[in-house]
Nucleic acid binder design. Sequence first.
DNA 1: TATTTTTTATTGACGGATCAATCAACAAAA
DNA 2: TTTTGTTGATTGATCCGTCAATAAAAAATA
Lengths: 196, 196
Amino acid sequence: MPKLGMEPLRRRALIDATISAIGERGSLDVTMSEIAGRAGVSSALAHHYFGAKDELLLATMRHILAELTADMRRALRSTSTARERVSAVVAVNFSDIQFQPETIAAWLAFYVEAQKSAALRRLLKVYARRLHSNLLSGLTGILPRSEADRVAEATAALIDGLYIRRALKDGVPNATTAIALIEDYLETKLSRRSAQ
Amino acid sequence: MPKLGMEPLRRRALIDATISAIGERGSLDVTMSEIAGRAGVSSALAHHYFGAKDELLLATMRHILAELTADMRRALRSTSTARERVSAVVAVNFSDIQFQPETIAAWLAFYVEAQKSAALRRLLKVYARRLHSNLLSGLTGILPRSEADRVAEATAALIDGLYIRRALKDGVPNATTAIALIEDYLETKLSRRSAQ
DNA sequence: TATTTTTTATTGACGGATCAATCAACAAAA
DNA sequence: TTTTGTTGATTGATCCGTCAATAAAAAATA
């Protein structure tokens, strides 16, 4: 009994199913049938709406990035100082929505896949550049350009590193600890400069 | 014309081939035929010596870890102060042998696979714990225990994060920059403490 | 020493399983 | 009657793992 206007609902359901499937298995090695089953439809329908599997995966990554970007914008809107902006960027990456096992596993899996897929690599590069510029926009208000650049690079690396460690359930366990670790780094970096 | 004593040579060749295959493809999605072909043998022989594919992958990871461990021991042997020990641990992770595209891609791929394979996860956990304790053994001579622990955690996360970024050919380009970034972090952390 | 037998090295071919992608067909709304 | 939604069945490709067969070295035996 086909109701009209199913397309956006199915697309969304399939993307959600993709994230949860990848999150559970911990890799992109999930079958179209598995994903479709989770979304409550046949694998043929998944192909109908997304074409090849690659495009479903790409759409999923796009969705994750879009959510992160939206969260970021929202968080940045309610800040006033440069220092606050830096903390906001860090905090968003470890918010309840982002720092979940499923999402992290998906991130990691996509990172690996990006070495194969040029399209995915381009997507991740856009994100990386945006993260960097977001961090920089806060840091340049406090540090000289060259040092701000290095601190932004280190912060981004710390975020990625803590994501990996989370995925392996080793080391840093929760988001609070992760944030504290990065804030500690930023504080020593920033307070030191302001004291000079 | 079968020469005797081939086993260790074939095993080594197959492991090397596995690393280069994974490194080139950027994921563990390499076929036994591909690996065997690179090693100059048939896929049947690879199965003959390693059994299932999982075990070849596991042996490969073990080999990479063993090399890293050996490098680490060698580097630590020629240090005398606690501070030098910390720098040595960092440097080894970015040495010419370790910080190569192939090895890094393999690392990343294994990280992801570890979410599926318990055996692989155990292996990586051993490495993570050893890295932590190596860092700690240097840091506890300079910082109070709790802070040393946090700095070790952050340093490990930085190493992982810089590895990821290297794999994506984004951000930090070379080993020297990566080391400088971590050393800069350590220096601010350590000099600040010693000044108090 | 000459021979048989065992061990080691190696592969081509194949079975069987998995899975992406297609397609014809059906059902209901417009 | 056209459009939209949906699926079961099927095809074709890929790939792991096995097995029987071959070849040569080493060991055992006559």
